[in-house]
């Protein structure tokens, strides 16, 4: 019990609610920061985002232009080109750096799209019972088992190539797992007696969803979104590798696509393959580690016994 009752007279109910949220956030941060791997992941992500944002300030975009490339053809790393050059003589370092922008943009947007779709469908399927739920569940189960990459390939083949298409293709194919998760969580929350109490107090559907279900589901959604970004980045690189990316933008998958077209693997040009792949691995791992640490904050059962 706290002694904040004294200050109560000066605080409005809204301010009280925000104070409570602030305390909850601080507690969550304390729990998160006790996870070493989570902190490392967060650090990597902050760095990646900064690099992506600062690329136009710190480097020269001209280096991406094939016609203005200054390096030799597929040259190994040297003093000028720390990570070597691609088939057109562009710096692999510069390409990988700029690739961060597109890969993060697509990864985050696609993950958001999929999580938003999943949350809406998940809550509706759980809250409204009977046939609404039955129909939605049928659809969710269908998309859940459908090989999502095959569907994404199909979508990005028939739509105009571009960043928007890739975001839509990934977002539209990866939402079912979020929907399942949100549905399960909503069902657990709605089985709690405080929902019954809220109904008995006179609360309607909207009141229950907004005041009780959403606040309980959102942290889970946030965790899911964090993990989904990693998956989306891998999916983006896969689509780009298959030649379905935006040919006018530099992404990590796109570099690897070029490397395949130029037979870099057979030519032994490891500097062409390693940097973009390592970048994908590190950023995806960082998102995964962050997501897992957040999961532990939410679910005390996963915590290590002290």
């Amino acid at each position: 019990m706290s002694d904040e009752g004294v200050s109560l007279k000066t605080l409005s109910p809204r301010a009280l609610a925000w104070q409570r949220r602030g305390r909850a956030a601080a507690a969550a941060w304390r729990e998160f920061s006790s996870s070493k791997s989570g902190l490392v992941g967060l650090g990597v992500l902050v760095l990646a985002v900064l690099l992506a944002l600062l690329a136009p300030v710190l480097s020269n975009e001209d280096g991406l232009d094939v016609t203005k490339a200054t390096g030799g053809r597929m040259r190994p790393p040297d003093g000028n080109f720390w990570l070597g050059t691609d088939v057109d003589g562009r710096s692999i370092l510069l390409l990988t750096w700029w690739g961060t922008r597109v890969s993060l943009l697509i990864g985050i947007s696609a993950a958001l799209l999929s999580v938003v779709i999943g949350t809406v469908i998940g809550i509706i399927a759980a809250h409204y019972g009977r046939w609404v739920s039955a129909v939605l569940l049928r659809i969710v189960d269908f998309f859940l088992v459908l090989p999502s990459l095959v569907l994404a390939i199909a979508l990005s083949t028939v739509l105009e190539p571009g960043i928007g298409t890739i975001i839509v293709a990934i977002g539209l194919t990866s939402w079912p797992s979020a929907a399942r998760l949100v549905r399960a969580q909503t069902l657990t929350v709605e089985a709690r007696p405080y929902i019954e109490r809220s109904r008995a107090l006179g609360g309607g559907n909207l009141h229950i969803i907004v005041k009780h279900v959403l606040p309980a589901v959102l942290p889970l959604v946030f965790v899911n979104a964090t993990l989904a970004v990693g998956n989306a980045i891998v999916a983006e690189s896969t689509l780009a590798f298959l030649g379905l990316g935006d040919p006018f933008q530099t992404s990590w998958g796109g570099i690897l696509h070029n490397a395949t077209v130029d037979s870099a693997a057979l030519a032994g040009a490891w500097w062409y393959l390693l940097p973009p792949g390592v970048a994908i691995g590190v950023v995806v791992l960082a998102f995964t580690l962050c997501g897992r640490a957040l999961e532990t904050v939410l679910n005390p059962r996963l915590r290590e016994p002290r």
């Binding site: 009280l16 409570r20 109490r197 005041k211 009780h212």
Partner: peptide, 25 residues
């Protein structure tokens, strides 16, 4: 007509303060 439930632990939203729980109605 108001309801009082069996288990007060689960009858209160763990995220809501006492003030919010009472003000909900």
């Amino acid at each position: 007509v108001q309801l009082v439930l069996q288990d007060p632990t689960s009858a209160l939203n763990p995220r809501h303060t006492v003030y919010e729980a009472i003000a909900e109605g």
